[in-house]
Computed example of a mutant assay.
Amino acid sequence: MKIDLHSHTTFSDGHLTPTELIQRAQTMQVDVLAITDHDTTDGLAVAREVASEQFPALHLIDGVEISTRWQSFEIHIVGLAIDKQHPQLQAFLKQQQQKREERAVKIAEKLAKCGFEGVLERARRYAGDGQITRAHFARVLVNNYQVSSFEKAFKLYLGKGKRAAVKAEWPAMAEAIGVIQQAGGRAVLAHPIHYDMTAKWLRRLVAEFSAEGGDGIEVVFPGINADKQTFVQSLAKEHNLLASAGSDFHFPGRWTELGRCGLASDVLTPVWHDWDLNVANSSIKEPV
């Protein structure tokens, strides 16, 4: 069974609409897919409708990826098998969306001081009905201002400590974990080696995430080599965290593709170990 529990659509910083993502999942023969847009669940209803009509064999998991703060780091927590209509979750996400809007305005102001005028309007056009993210600003810089690549846009302007970086006032990890679990979901620490921290700090992060009630950790995702994967798996085992896997898919590419990051471990318990995956396209609300 091919399982991918981390993907994005145009409702955040993905390049494919929910319809296109479902069609891509079918092409890549994905059996279980979680859509985890940044701080929004707005694309889930469309995706479920399309899956029901076009790809009924797909097990679609309702999810979200929430931005949080820990120490000086922005940490992402994926919520899996959530009740997307849960009122506390939706109230929380509205607050997150307002913070994203406030950050976008400040980023645009800083980029204007760097000589890039009119970026906010262009970034909004890329975002469409979705959440505006730093990736939309990177697209503007690459497509309109001769910045050579996404990586260069972050390295020079948008990354941590750079000229147009803006620190959003994200909530603490414990708050995000709590709201995910109130909505019947499981809270998973996303792509833990991507936070530009030392192994010592990563140990602290995972320990605190676990102590605050986190359920799982991604142990398979793009950009993780064998040694780091072994290290992350050892942290999962040490703190009794469930194991998750996902491509963090944003668009078709050489390095990221739906269904490529499979979990194979006889030591760790998968985050989906007690989900009922026998009913195609079912909406999983709570563990069995």
Rank of each mutant, 00 (worst) to 15 (best):
L60E: 09
W255Y: 03
A168M: 03
L268Y: 06
S52W: 03
P192W: 03
G246S: 00
A168H: 02
V271K: 00
W70Y: 15
R204G: 13
R163Y: 01
Q96S: 15
L120P: 12
M173K: 08
V188G: 12
T9F: 09
V166D: 07
I193S: 00
E49C: 12
T269G: 00
G214M: 04
G216Y: 02
V140F: 14
K162I: 05
R203G: 09
K160F: 11
K99V: 13
E212A: 13
Q26G: 15
K152P: 06
P18F: 13
F251T: 10
R69D: 09
L120G: 03
V147L: 12
Q90N: 15
G178D: 10
I177L: 08
V166K: 05
W170K: 11
V147N: 06
E65V: 08
V219L: 03
L89S: 11
R125D: 15
V188T: 10
C114V: 08
I61H: 04
A127V: 07
S52K: 11
I82C: 10
I3K: 12
S12F: 00
A47P: 10
L235Q: 10
Q229W: 01
T9S: 13
S7Y: 10
S52V: 08
E238G: 09
H8Y: 12
L21C: 02
I22C: 13
G223R: 00
G14C: 08
E109S: 12
F116T: 04
K160A: 00
K106F: 11
Q71L: 06
D196C: 03
P252A: 05
K106H: 08
M1D: 13
P270H: 01
A187S: 14
K84V: 14
H239V: 00
Q229F: 00
G115R: 06
R163D: 12
S148A: 02
V50L: 10
S244Y: 05
D37F: 09
E121C: 12
I77V: 14
V288M: 02
S210I: 01
D266T: 05
W255F: 11
T269M: 02
A164Q: 07
Q95D: 14
S210V: 06
P87V: 13
D274S: 08
T10G: 12
G159T: 10
K2E: 14
D227L: 08
L277I: 03
R163M: 07
D274L: 04
D62P: 01
E109K: 07
T40P: 06
